Amino acid sequence: MTFSTTDMINNITGSRRLRRNRMTPWARAMVRENTVTPDDLILPLFIIDGKSEEEAIEAMPGVSRRSVDKAVELTRHAASLGIPAVAPFPNVDLAKRDQAGSAILDPDNLICRYVKAVKDAGIDIGIITDSALDPFTDHGHDGVLRDGVIVNDESVEQIVKASILQAQAGADIIAPSDMMDGRIGAIRQALDAEGFSDTAIMSYTAKYASGFYGPYREAIGTDQTLKGDKATYYIDPANSEDAMREAEMDIAEGADSLMVKPGMPYLDIIWRMKSTFGMPVFAYQVSGEYSMIEAAAANGWLDGERAMMESIVAFKRAGADGILSYFAIRVAEKLHSS
């Protein structure tokens, strides 16, 4: 008896053809497991002093530092696209930086000015502020430097004070990225004591000692000031259990949501954290991830828009509830136009 190729395939697969659900755009849409919407996006942006100022960031094509007024304009646009939240990061004048990051406690610093300006403008969008010290220190580290060591408890004291100041300015979520031990519990206790019990905490729970932060450091001006590396307080890229222990501690101390940073190299951590704890988990698609896609696209090595969308949906597939991404505006605009 002679069998055709079709007969042989049917004999193997039992007439099951998985391709039937992939044959047309409508069929693919009907069975799609994960869908990205503007609600999934958080826009990080960079703030500088001045008026009507906008500075291109060389290492991040398409991303700029903006003075507060210009940043408010961008924030209004983000809100109009349905992006639910923004995360501002300052580039502080070098003359205002010191060993303890003291300028973070100035009520008129760039973060506080931006938060107040957005609130005064009546823009309906959440503001997520970082109370880590690195944009304000003259050594580029996330905490206070003493005798070559980032001292944990003194750093936490400074970070707690900064968190209160940001909440007073109107921040909706405090997101400390410093990775100091005990800072989530200390911030929660202080917020509650100061009457900010409704102010949430998004912990940078699993922030890895990564090589993907370079363009961000250029954006906030710590690329030339950073002394040494951050491996003594960020997580080793080889470790997974360490991230789980950090998550357990942060949840016990009162974190409302967790973050994994960077994003794509740590999709397994996002998946494991979400499935283990059932907490809201966010991914930060960091500057290096953004710049790699942009550089490859500029050289014609890949389809930049397609890679952008594929990377965002990968975070959703891994279990992320939301994604901080420098692509946020472009992704939201694409979603609205499709």
Rank of each mutant, 00 (worst) to 15 (best):
M1Q: 11
F3N: 01
T5K: 12
G14C: 00
R16Q: 12
R22Q: 02
M23S: 09
M23W: 09
A29Y: 01
M30A: 14
E33C: 02
L41R: 05
E53F: 04
E55Y: 15
E55K: 08
G62A: 03
S64W: 07
R66Y: 01
S67R: 02
V72M: 09
V72H: 08
L74K: 02
R76M: 11
A78E: 06
S80H: 10
L81I: 09
G82H: 06
A87I: 02
P90H: 15
A95N: 13
D98E: 05
A103L: 03
I111E: 09
A117E: 13
V118E: 01
V118G: 06
K119V: 13
T137D: 15
H141T: 04
H141P: 12
V144Q: 03
V144S: 09
V151P: 10
V160W: 08
V160H: 05
Q166K: 04
Q168K: 07
D172T: 11
I173M: 05
P176E: 10
S177F: 05
M179C: 00
D181H: 11
A186T: 06
I187H: 01
R188E: 14
Q189W: 08
A190C: 10
A190L: 12
L191A: 01
E194H: 13
G195N: 02
S197F: 13
T205V: 12
K207E: 03
A209E: 03
P215E: 14
Y216F: 15
E218Q: 15
A219R: 01
I220T: 10
D229S: 11
D229N: 13
A231P: 03
T232P: 09
I235L: 06
A247K: 05
G254A: 10
A255H: 00
P265Q: 07
D268A: 10
D268H: 11
M273F: 15
G278R: 14
A283M: 04
A283R: 04
G288P: 03
M292A: 05
M292L: 05
A295W: 12
A298V: 03
W301D: 09
G304E: 06
G304R: 03
A307V: 08
A307Q: 05
G319Q: 02
A320K: 03
D321N: 08
D321M: 08
G322F: 00
I323V: 05
Y326G: 11
I329R: 02
I329W: 01
E333Q: 14
E333S: 11
